[in-house]
Design a binder for these strands. Structure first.
Lengths: 241, 241
DNA sequence: TATGTAAGTGTTCAATATACACTTTATAGC
DNA sequence: GCTATAAAGTGTATATTGAACACTTACATA
């Protein structure tokens, strides 16, 4: 291939992956301790450098796989971070990707053997470079996404209960929702199909399992929809002086 | 500065600018004929290469200024395009930015002397590489943006009339809105301040000028809001066979 | 001064969102 | 096996918001 652009600067391009999972009623983030200098040993997102023979998506998937063993994760672009001194090692621009995944036992082990850890988004430690800023942006994007697209398919197991789904929404948006209104709204979208089976163990009564209707889910994910509810009024707390 | 990342590939990073303006009741896009190989002479977005000593935003502004003379334009990141063969010249990843601007006489001349042209978004020619795809994405982003953020500040002159504002919304979303409902909704946001002055010339009666309340505008731009209206029912068209 | 053209204005009805509390179910402990 | 407990499940009345719809006003120009 002829080279037309000889005279222009070339740049290191990093790919950083922000992976959210939902576990134990909490929204979690996958982090690891950086294995090379600079900032070796500090908490970091999964990151690596783009190669010349791979597209951005391929690169991001490769980086994630190398660092955690996770494969077949669909990630979306979040933002490009390109301040001059964001990486003290060398001028690097970083393309941040994010994904939502359901964490199964297998993934959990894979991640662990690679030294990755799931951390609650409420307890994110200090990360290297501008990675905290990236996580911030990803969280804000994720929150606004819940209002415009269905969510859950990527974060919950195939069968899940309505209380689980509600607690997912509550964990992402950090707010309490009214049970009746939540059910009514989510059911009337037609996204969910009720199964004839109950979850046992989590409660005495047991909650019915549901599944997503895949076609409807994809349709809404494509076209967008609207899902916003007022936060449940918290019971008044009397402040005594 | 110590170099830690010697062994990694480096890449050409392009910055492409998608500039929307509103003029004569139409949403327009700024294009120019590419001045260098490959694809010299074909229609293109304003693009150039990132330099090592500038941030992404700085680079995008520089490119836009060099190619059109426009300055002080605030652009937002749209997306990164990084398919392997998107640029036949050489492997290049491109960060696309977009902006909305109000086109004044001065800008118009500046752009013209630089060989740039304002083209209606309804008549976009074939562009080089993946630039049509970039414009597509920018348009979709712009449309969804009208539902979540106030718009107009960047596209209209300081003083504008309600019919102008409505026609901006209609041009962006390519739909007709009901005059009374539009006015009611936009006025009750508190975003607008009515002036004691009428626009003359555009109509016999003349429409009152309004300005944006800058604080409210910034507040809503930051927090987001909701502005969505059903499209006006088009009068029935009888199809005779 | 008559005519034409776009600006401006309110109300009714329908749909949707919110607030709110008791009943049901099954387990586990006695 | 009876009882206590803890979470799941369910419906309605009211308030709010959104949509549909047509005539009057102001001014310029002929």
């Amino acid at each position: 291939m002829a080279k037309f652009y000889k005279e222009y600067d070339k740049h290191l391009v990093a790919l950083d992956c922000i992976i959210f999972g939902f576990d134990e009623g909490e929204l979690k983030l996958l982090l690891l301790k950086r294995k090379f200098e600079p900032a070796k040993g500090e908490w970091s997102l999964m990151g690596g450098f783009l190669k010349s023979d791979e597209s951005l998506d391929e690169g991001a998937r490769r980086v994630l796989h190398q660092l955690t063993g996770l494969s077949d994760i669909y990630m979306e672009q979040l933002h490009v971070f390109g301040e001059l001194n964001r990486d003290p090692g060398e001028r690097t621009i970083s393309i941040a990707f994010y994904a939502l995944i359901k964490v199964d036992e297998n993934d959990r082990k894979l991640a662990e053997t690679h030294g990755a850890h799931w951390v609650s988004v409420n307890q994110i430690p200090q990360l290297i470079f501008d990675h905290n800023q990236m996580v911030d942006k990803a969280l804000r994007t994720l929150r606004s996404r819940t209002e415009r697209k269905p969510i859950g398919f990527e974060l919950l197991p195939e069968k899940f209960t309505l209380p689980q789904l509600q607690s997912l929404y509550e964990a992402i948006n950090q707010e309490q929702l009214d049970k009746r209104n939540f059910r009514k709204r989510i059911l009337e979208t037609g996204l969910l199909e009720k199964l004839d089976e109950k979850e046992k163990g989590a409660s005495k009564k047991g909650a019915y399992y549901y599944m997503f209707n895949k076609e409807k889910y994809l349709m809404y994910a494509e076209m967008g929809f609207h899902f916003q509810m007022k936060v449940k009024k918290s019971p008044l707390i009397k402040i005594t002086t």
